[in-house]
Design a protein around this nucleic acid. Structure first.
Lengths: 137, 137
DNA sequence: GTAATTCCTATTAAATCGGTAGGATTAATA
DNA sequence: TATTAATCCTACCGATTTAATAGGAATTAC
């Protein structure tokens, strides 16, 4: 299941992409517009800023803005920041690889084989979708 | 992330598929062969039996067996029984649909749009993979 | 009747999720 | 310089889920 964090994060990014004027977008506006608890959203946007997807401006008239064009923000990047590994098991993860405790030989493992296919097909979607695709009506 | 339940369940099914003689396969043998805590595995196999994928024979010399040919057991079925919905959000689930609280219009929702694509690509894998594929070396 | 097995219910420890609270820090502006 | 409005940071909390474990009842082969 997709976490609320990721869901809210995606909605927030879409909201910001659609609001692009010159002004940064404030947390309050996003929270209100997308029905997201404001304090929770704050922490999510902070994560996105620390990862480099968003920039922020502090103080009065501050807010968040995209650091790249929507068409250059890939879902692979966003999903990894918000949701973590794209793979369903660490032993097939490209960016968060870990060996299974119980698995003597990955290449003989039926779960491994199946999950590589799932990973690849999901990656294929995320690699070919940008924030611009999400925010276009 | 894939739950241990699903992972163990898939391994167990593969183990049974590979062991097919006429004798039912015992929990103890699977647990030992696949390094799965036996009591936990018991509950998983029970779930698979109740869903109709496995049959069981009780008492001495009892155990579990497949109720269909491995080539007829689709991953869609197995995954839904073990892991639940294939979709990452209930609002795009085919078998476990639920409306989002916060979403006034699904068709305008950027998350919805993205998750439909992920669902379809994952379904495509599960619909085209059977237990026979997993258990073949 | 005994041993071996599945079946069932309950409990538990740990982790994660979704959110809340409170205030520190920073910047615009009057 | 004081006020106001925003981000930033740390800590906490309750509920749920996960990954088991425990203990025994029911069933069957021999």
């Amino acid at each position: 299941m997709l976490s609320k964090k990721t869901k809210y994060g995606l909605k927030a990014l879409t909201f910001i992409a659609r609001s692009e004027g010159d002004m940064p977008v404030q947390v309050g506006a996003i929270a209100k517009g997308e029905q997201i608890p404001q304090k929770f959203l704050e922490s999510i946007l902070l994560t996105l800023r620390k990862s480099g997807i968003l920039g922020s401006k502090k103080g009065k008239h501050g807010g968040y803005y995209l650091r790249k064009e929507p068409s250059e923000i890939l879902m692979t990047e966003v999903m990894r920041v918000l949701e973590g590994p794209i793979a369903m098991v660490p032993c097939v993860s490209l960016n968060f690889y870990e060996k299974c405790d119980d698995c003597p030989d990955e290449h003989a493992c039926s779960v491994n084989k199946l999950m590589i296919q799932v990973r690849d097909s999901t990656l294929n979607v995320f690699r070919n979708t940008t924030l611009a695709d999400l925010s276009s009506k």
